[in-house]
Amino acid sequence: MTTTSAPAKPRFSLVSILATPTVGPFIALVLASILFASQSDRFLSASNFSLIVQQVMVVGTLAIGQTLVILTAGIDLSNGMIMAFSQILMAKVFMDNAVPAPLAILLGFIAAMAFGAANGLLVTRLKLPPFIVTLGMFNIAFALTRIYTTTTIRMTDSPWHVFFGRTFTVGGDGGTKFTYGSVLMVLLFFIAWFVLRETAIGRRVYAIGDNPEATRLAGINTQRLLVGVYMVAGLFYGIAGLLLISRTGVADPQAGQNANLESITAVVLGGTSLFGGRGNILGTLLGALIVGIFRNGLTLMGVDSIYQWLITGVLVILAVAVDQVTQRRAK
């Protein structure tokens, strides 16, 4: 009769606090911000913050899909190329085939989801490792994009395609400008957070990455769920494609070639385990912001951009090391 619902007594050791997902990244974010603020007056300005969010909105949206896949103990190397194909498609059918803009954008989303479905089906039906499947899909989507077109398409004449690049002002005249795309990205993060945390599907996504066999034995159709996850991830990549057009004003067939690693960086920095089943999608938002803030801060300090790569690399290895150590302690 000692069953209680009182929360377990927390252990306040340094390791357990650092090991809590999103606490480590949050501390890194605060420390970096203090450093950059001491080095540059512009860093803490609202307009600079708006700029950072704009700079991370594409990778951030890609990273939502990436987080979903990684939570299932998968990985998606194809996301940047799926995004590239999707944006080229939504631009080209509009320009060349006179498809109405909203429909063209929808086609882009559908194509991205189809790539996701292909990834999911190969992973579940043929039991191929996600790493290999999505590496293959990376090449396929890249090739298809380049076969389709090699020229950059200017899209500024289509209000639908560049809507999310438009800004609104917060704080009256002379206030800070934010893009609608930034708002959309944050909104998408909160929707994903809600679904993962509050719905059965969300909890099952965690369960499948945690112990796929137990999830299957609990009567859950794990194959269908996995295909669904890859498809929804595809939808996020399609939305990222639209945001990319909005931000740059063009659809570029060369886009997104490093986006897979950048999105994985955001996910890992955000404290989501590469082993699946653990993590928090809001950590990914934090992770994307960390990368953005480091890039931005170092630029403001006048540091050569090659050092940004150096620091991002160190941060990723650090984040994975913390994950490994905590996993070992858990076992």
């Binding site: 909890r203 099952r204 112990n211 999830t215 609990a218 859950i220």
Partner: peptide, 26 residues
């Protein structure tokens, strides 16, 4: 219902989530 020998639970989920896995109440 069957209990399998190899501990068929999801370790990162909590006890309640494990008990209701696949039969969640909305």
């Amino acid at each position: 219902e069957t209990v399998y020998q190899d501990l068929a639970v999801a370790p990162a989920l909590n006890i309640v989530e494990n008990m209701f896995l696949g039969r969640e109440i909305r």
